[in-house]
């Protein structure tokens, strides 16, 4: 039996053929090494992220996450829910807290859930994978698993928004959280100190609807990483990862920059440092290849 077991909410973007399928691959590798068992919530649905509000009112949106929690309580009873996507985590935890505070909303949510034959108890803690790593596993255990230290690689820890606000990681500040830098250090790499854009917004879903405004912000995030001497950026968020990685050609065209900055997940770094193959670390999922990691994973 695995040492740690959780009820896992993978989210839409992690599915096969979706934009952060590489995230899931590296998370699975990382969890194998850390003896973490992820039990998928059966038949989970989309949480409606942070952009569902035009079509979805408060109760329909809360009902979506309530369905996931109810399914988890029915099928993975007693297990904490863990999400790897920042938006999934935020929406699920927000739902849990809001329904706990408001009896009439809770009653209405259960009325809606009854239509699908479900009932919400709302007794399940909702965690982000980063919380599992820091609070349940710990830096020391992670450090012990390192077989190939990421020596000589300088990495800008881009925490972004929704893994950081409004809930954040216990004991960390909203303005300058340290955990990603500590994790980078634990893996033997060199974090960029005082990375200016650590908690800057990348535009989120507005990268699609307001590309010019968003790309200006993304430009700043990449520029600050170069200024800090970074070889790559690491992030815990699938939207951050995609937004910062895939628009670099457009930004170069528009601003005359020459960006070619790899953007990876913490789980990519960990899989490589734990000695796993490039494939297991999902390095083949990089649109901008992370060459320094490829060399180590060889």
């Amino acid at each position: 039996m695995a040492k740690h077991e959780y009820s896992f909410y993978p989210g839409c973007s992690s599915q096969k053929g979706a934009s952060s399928s590489n995230y899931l691959t590296s998370v699975e590798t990382m969890c194998e090494e850390l003896d973490i068992q992820l039990n998928h919530i059966p038949d989970w649905n989309c949480c409606s992220a942070s952009i569902g509000y035009a079509g979805g009112g408060e109760l329909p949106r809360l009902a979506l996450s309530a369905r996931n929690i109810a399914l988890s309580e029915e099928h993975n009873a007693g297990q904490e829910i863990v999400a790897t996507c920042a938006a999934c985590w935020l929406a699920t935890r927000e739902t849990s807290e809001r329904l706990a505070e408001d009896e009439s909303l809770m009653a209405e949510a259960n009325q809606a859930l009854a239509e699908a034959g479900l009932k919400l108890k709302n007794e399940t803690p909702i965690k982000h994978m980063v919380e599992v790593l820091i609070e349940d596993i710990g830096y020391d255990t992670i450090g012990e698993k390192v077989k190939k230290p990421l020596e000589g690689i300088k990495i800008a820890g881009y925490v972004g928004c929704q893994t950081n606000r409004p809930f954040g990681i216990h004991g960390e500040s909203f303005e300058n959280p340290q955990y990603l830098d500590k994790l980078v250090e634990t893996l033997g790499a060199d974090p960029v100190k005082n990375y200016d854009k650590k908690v800057q917004c990348c535009g989120g879903a507005l990268a699609f609807s307001e590309p010019d405004k968003s790309q200006e912000m993304i430009k700043g995030i990449i520029e600050a990483a170069y200024d800090g001497g970074a070889d790559m950026i690491v992030t815990p968020c699938p939207v951050c990862q995609m937004n910062v990685e895939v628009y670099q050609d457009h930004i170069n065209e528009k601003f005359g920059t020459k960006f070619k900055m790899p953007v990876v997940y913490y789980s990519t770094l960990m899989s490589v440092a734990f000695g796993r193959s490039a494939k297991d670390a999902a390095l083949d999922g990089q649109v901008i290849p992370a060459k320094k990691l490829e060399e180590i994973a060889k």
Binding site: S20, L59, V287
Partner: peptide, 29 residues
Amino acid sequence: TKRMSPAEAFGGHGVKDISGLHKMIKKAQ
């Protein structure tokens, strides 16, 4: 990089109990 799939144009991922989900959302609305 297999982070987009043309197969999604035909059907694609979805929940199994879609009728339950639709009934739930209708009620919530």
